[in-house]
Amino acid sequence: MSRNAKFRVWRGDAAGGELHDYTVEVNEGEVVLDIIHRLQATQAGDLAVRWNCKAGKCGSCSAEINGRPRLLCMTRMSTFTDDEVITVTPMRSFPVIRDLVTDVSFNYQKARQIPAFAPPPDLAPGEYRMQQVDVERSQEFRKCIECFLCQNVCHVVRDHEENKTAFSGPRFFIRAAELDMHPLDARTDRREFAQAEQGIGMCNITKCCTEVCPEHIKITDNAIIPMKERVVDRKYDPLVWLGNKLFRRGND
């Protein structure tokens, strides 16, 4: 069954742009990315869009649909009513290159700042042994496909460009939590790093990152809040600090 749908797509670049109206054919079972491709093939041959897998696994096709951060390839046309006008715009927190394609290098800079996994000094590669219960929590975070929708929706940088230097964003808080919870990571300063270098204190746990994550990672509950609590252990809790001094804990 096919029908015609009304689309508004943002066309332009850093110098400016506007929403263009299109009427385009939609078939049963299609997703928004299919329609964008049909536009390219029929009416707008130079429309720029980034995509790779069309299966929600590469994280390339992030954009905003009716104002909400979504993957173009995972948004089914059947979720809209027949007469709804569907507005597709590029992600709003990153510089636009052209049309739906943005420059996401902010995220790669933040990724590079995080100290890598530190191998335990007393074990040679190949001798690592870990219990499933100890790595389970981190495995949730490994599902991340780096679509950066969470980075895009986060109001700390979306609404305040100037915070980009001090704030790493939710995707990198889950990386911080993953390493701090890693049973074999030898670094002991991950919490200080999260607070001083990544700016985890700027997050006000309003959970938009969790709302948009296409992998349904509980970013706020399972990574950011636990990480904030770990920072409290180090920085703001004299009882824990004293306990660690007296009983030489810290290797739990």
Binding site: R158, D159, H160, G199, G201, M202, C203, I205, T206
Partner: peptide, 25 residues
């Protein structure tokens, strides 16, 4: 209350009205 009283942010992908922001730092 950050969302509903302080609009920081009022909802996801809805720009907040504040000029500057430092979170809980």
């Amino acid at each position: 209350y950050y969302r509903s009283f302080w609009f920081s942010p009022p909802a996801c992908a809805v720009a907040e009205p504040h000029r500057s922001y430092t979170g809980e730092t």
